[in-house]
Simulated assay, not measured.
Amino acid sequence: MKKIMIFSLLFSLAACRGNSEQKVVDPVVEFDSAFCERLMPGLGGGITGGDGSISIDLKDGRSLFMWGDSFFGDVINDKRAKDTKFVIGNTFTIIDKNGQLKTLYSGTKENPLAFIEADQDGKSPVWYWPGHGFVKNGILHLFMSKFHKVGEGAFGFEYLCCDYFRLDVETMKIRHYID
């Protein structure tokens, strides 16, 4: 047993020795316009921009894309329409196996709100930001970070906690949540 452990240690040290001399390679980033057009079509008033994207396989031929702050509205000649709405927090897009999109949010088309809304404390705006998730036995398990506004500017916010949600994959309705 000692011989195996010594060999493993020597092999590991030899394998790691060359790592300090490796060159850093600049990654090549390419814009995939076909995928973006499919997921965020410029016309139709749906989500035309969002950050913090996380995708989850729903295990039924559909994929879920969770977005952080999002824009709703048309993009014409590479410019957002004047009536574009901005949503703080989270919105979701489901794409089915035929490429059909379904956008999930609360509120109305004229006044869209986050899909999973946070209870407000009355002191400052509170919202959920997408964390990550997985599907098991028809339940979508989501981890969402909760933030609130504490100051001015784009970064005037503070992390509060991480809450856990369980949604029915078929209906996307919240079945249970733990804060």
Rank of each mutant, 00 (worst) to 15 (best):
I116F: 07
W67C: 12
D78T: 08
F72S: 01
F65I: 15
I116A: 07
K82Q: 09
F65R: 07
D119W: 00
K85S: 14
T93K: 11
N98L: 08
E110L: 06
Q120Y: 03
S70L: 03
V126S: 08
G122M: 09
D69M: 04
T108P: 04
K136G: 00
K136H: 09
V135L: 03
G99K: 11
T84L: 06
F86Y: 13
W127N: 07
T84F: 03
N77D: 12
G133E: 00
N90L: 04
L64I: 01
P112H: 09
Y128C: 05
L142Y: 05
N77G: 00
V135H: 04
I76N: 00
R80H: 11
T103M: 09
A114D: 09
I88T: 13
H132D: 12
T93S: 14
G107W: 01
K85G: 07
H132S: 13
D96G: 11
Y105F: 12
L101I: 13
M66R: 08
E117I: 11
K136R: 10
S124G: 00
L101D: 11
P130E: 08
S124T: 14
N137I: 00
K123M: 03
D69T: 12
T91C: 15
K79F: 11
K123T: 08
G99V: 11
N90S: 08
V126D: 05
L64K: 03
H141Y: 13
K102R: 15
D74K: 02
Q120A: 06
F71G: 05
L142A: 06
I94E: 12
F72T: 00
D119M: 08
Q100V: 14
K102C: 07
I88R: 15
L140K: 04
K79L: 10
D96N: 15
R80W: 11
K136I: 02
F134G: 01
N90H: 10
M66V: 05
T91N: 15
T108K: 05
K97C: 02
D83R: 05
P125H: 04
G133Q: 00
S106Q: 10
W127Q: 09
T103E: 14
G89S: 10
F86C: 02
P125D: 02
D96V: 10
K85I: 05
T91Y: 06
R80Y: 14
P130Y: 05
D78P: 00
I76T: 12
M66A: 15
W127Y: 12
F71E: 03
L101Y: 06
T93L: 10
Y105M: 14
L101E: 05
V135F: 03
I116N: 02
L113R: 14
S70F: 03
A118T: 05
L104K: 03
N77F: 01
E110K: 14
P112S: 12
L64C: 07
D69F: 01
D121S: 12
L113T: 11
N90G: 10
